[in-house]
């Protein structure tokens, strides 16, 4: 006998699909570009050396793959963590969370992220899906985040998948 699990997706959750959250600002600077590249183990000088980056046709040191800037940290502002983890004001009955994967899309025809850039990031929930796997019933949340530079050009999009079960 199979049992159908009741859906955990509520009208409240459906209503927020596609709704953009408050924008945040990310800073791309030479020091954090270098630190990111160093921590991955990159050897390409375009990630470290301004002259090498310019000689290769870039405005400044290039942000290496996966680096989209550092959020502006302020200890006097409440952290955004827990609210983001549980969603935006909705709660679901599952306790465990898995990162289902991350995909970045770049738009080099618009611009390449370089040191000196200020990136505005806007995120939204792209959709919810429910499925049952070996670990039981799961809620899959798809998020889409858009990264726009100081010239209003979309330089990257991030597609994230969160699995709760």
């Amino acid at each position: 006998m199979t049992t159908t699990n009741p859906s955990v997706i509520t009208d409240e959750m459906r209503a927020i699909v596609g709704v953009e959250g408050a924008p945040a600002t990310l800073e791309v600077e030479r020091t954090n570009c270098r630190m990111f590249a160093r921590s991955v183990g990159h050897a390409d000088p375009i990630f470290y050396d301004v002259d090498a980056a310019k000689a290769a046709g870039y405005r400044d040191i290039v942000a290496s793959p996966g680096f989209l800037g550092t959020p502006i940290f302020n200890p006097n502002r409440p952290p955004a963590g827990p609210a983001e983890m549980s969603g935006r004001g909705y709660s679901i009955p599952y306790k465990r969370v898995l990162n289902g994967g991350t995909e970045y899309e770049y738009f080099p025809e618009n611009d390449v992220i370089c040191a000196g850039d200020t990136i505005t990031v806007r995120g939204k929930i792209a959709g919810f899906e429910e499925t049952t796997g070996s670990i039981g019933p799961m809620l899959i949340t798809k998020r889409e985040t858009t990264y726009t530079n100081q010239d209003g050009k979309v330089v990257a999009k991030m597609y994230g998948t969160t699995i709760q079960y």
């Binding site: 375009i46 994967g101 991350t102 970045y104 899309e105 080099p108």
Partner: peptide, 13 residues
Amino acid sequence: GPKGELRKFGCSY
């Protein structure tokens, strides 16, 4: 290489 353009990359865990 230097003239290649990365358009998209991602993975799941």
